[in-house]
Computed example of a mutant assay.
Amino acid sequence: MARPLIADIDLDALRHNYRLARDQAPHSRAVAVIKADAYGHGAVACAQALEALAPAFAVACLEEAQALREASITTPIVLLEGIFATAELEHVETLDLWLVIHSDWQLEALLAYCPAHPIPVWLKVDSGMHRLGFPPAQVEAMWARLAAAPERACDLHLMSHFASADALQSADFRRQLELLDDLAIRLAAPTCFANSPATLAWPEAHGAWNRPGVMLYGSDPLEASNEASRRLTPVMTLRSAIIAVRELAAGEAVGYGGRWRAPRPSRIGVVACGYGDGYDRHAVDGTPVLVDGQRTAIAGKVSMDMLTVDLTDLPEADIGSEVVLWGRATNGQILSVDEVAHHCDTLSYTLLSGVLPRVPRRYHGAH
C-alpha cells in the first residue's frame, strides 16, 4: 500500500476563490497568480481549472510560463519578474508572453530588440517596497520611451506592489497609493496595483487589472479578516493517517530532544508526515491538527518522515485514523492553514508552496 500522506486539491474551491476575487472588483480584470507551481497546488492543473474564467495568468519566470504553454495553455501569461537575460526576449515572443519591465537594462534590451509583433509591457514602479521597479521620478521618461516605440512595446500598463496592504489601517499603504494614483493620472495609464489583500480590502486600489495570488488558494491574507476574506475556501487539504500508537506514563518524553513530556498517562499517535514532506519542522507543541475531524495537537518535534500528536482525549482514534494537517476533514471540519502557520511562526505561503514533490497531489473537480 502507498504511504497515506496526500495533498487533496479542490479545484471547485479554487474557482470559487477566483470568482470571489473577481466579484470584489467588478470593473477590473483579475490575473490569476500561479507562480511557484500555483503555490504548491500544481500550476498546470490550476491553470486548466481557471482557463475558462481567468483572462490572464501570472508567473515569476520564463520556465514557469513555458511549462504552461507545453500543457497547451493559450491564455495570456504575465512574467512578473520580466526577463533575466537579453536572450530570453526571443522566448517571450515565441511563447506570446506579457512582459514586466522593472530595470534599465531590461528596457534597453527590449528597445534594441525587433519582435515580429509588439510585446505587451507592464512598467513597474517602486512605490515604496524597494525590491523591483523604477524610482517614481524616472517613470514618466521610461513610459515615454516605450510609448515612442510601438513596434516593440504595446498595451502599456503601470504596475507596482504594496508592502502593507494586509493591514487595514496603514499610512504606508496610503502613501504608496497616493503616489501611484498621481503617476497613473499624469500618464493616463491603465494600472495593475492590487494584490490579494488589496483586492479584498482596498477598493480604491483596484485598477484595470488586479493580481489575486494566495487568496485563490483559500488563505486569508489580511491581518484582521473582513466579510469577503471569511468567504475564502481552502483548496489544499494535507491529509495523512495514524500509523502507530504509543501508551506513555506521566513524565515520559516524545521525539528528538524530549521536548514534550507527558503531563499525565497519555496516548501518542504517530503520523506519516514530516519535514521531508514539507511540513514545517519549527511547529511547536500545541500546533493544531484534526484527527477524525476532532482537534488535537502536535506533541514533540517534527521528524523528517513523521510527527506525533496527542490522542489522550480521543479514545476512539487508532491506527488508520484520518489526520488533517490543514484543510477540510472528511466530517467537514476545517483547520485553516493560516492558523497552522501562526503556530509555526511563518506564513501560509511558506507552508503551501513548501509541500514537496514526494507528496502526491490528488485533484477533485474537473480541470
Rank of each mutant, 00 (worst) to 15 (best):
R174E: 13
A171H: 15
Y275L: 04
G133S: 10
V254S: 03
E90A: 15
A341K: 09
L238D: 01
H161A: 12
L110I: 02
S72R: 14
R281M: 09
H41G: 10
G257L: 08
Q169K: 13
V139L: 15
S103T: 04
E90T: 14
V78H: 01
V33Y: 08
I9H: 04
I298Y: 06
V92F: 01
R152M: 02
Q24G: 07
A137T: 02
A149R: 05
R175C: 10
L89R: 02
M142T: 07
H343P: 01
P197V: 08
P197C: 03
V289A: 06
W143G: 04
H343V: 00
V100E: 00
Q106A: 04
S321K: 06
A171R: 15
V125K: 08
A188P: 02
G320I: 07
R328V: 06
H343Y: 12
T312S: 10
D305F: 04
I73F: 07
H206P: 04
I83C: 12
E178V: 10
H41Q: 14
E252C: 12
L347Q: 15
E252V: 12
N210H: 07
P263N: 09
S266V: 01
P203G: 11
T346D: 09
P150K: 13
W209I: 04
R362K: 07
Y256Q: 15
S225A: 15
Y349W: 14
E90R: 15
L248M: 07
A85D: 03
A228L: 13
R131L: 11
S336T: 09
L62Q: 01
G354F: 14
G320R: 13
R295C: 06
V121H: 08
A201M: 06
H282Q: 11
A329C: 06
L99S: 00
E151V: 06
A167I: 12
E63L: 06
P76N: 08
A43E: 00
V33A: 12
D181W: 07
R246D: 14
R230W: 02
E223H: 15
E70G: 02
A60L: 11
I268C: 01
S336L: 11
G332C: 02
L222N: 02
L158A: 11
S321V: 00
S225G: 08
F134C: 10
C61P: 08
A184Q: 06
A36I: 06
L180Q: 14
S170G: 07
L79Q: 03
L80T: 00
R19F: 11
R175N: 13
A144R: 13
S225K: 15
D285H: 11
G255Y: 11
G255D: 14
A299E: 04
S321M: 05
V100D: 00
W105E: 12
D12Q: 12
T287G: 02
I185R: 15
G257R: 12
E64I: 10
L232A: 08
W202A: 03
G133N: 06
L347E: 14
A36Y: 08
A171T: 14
G128N: 04
G365W: 01
L168F: 05
Q294N: 05
E88A: 13
P120C: 07
L347I: 12
L335M: 06
T233P: 11
W98G: 03
P221S: 00
G42E: 05
C46D: 01
I243Y: 03
D220I: 04
S348L: 09
L325W: 05
R261I: 01
H161C: 13
E151Y: 07
H117A: 13
P135C: 12
D126W: 09
I268Y: 00
D172I: 12
F193P: 13
E108Q: 15
R328N: 10
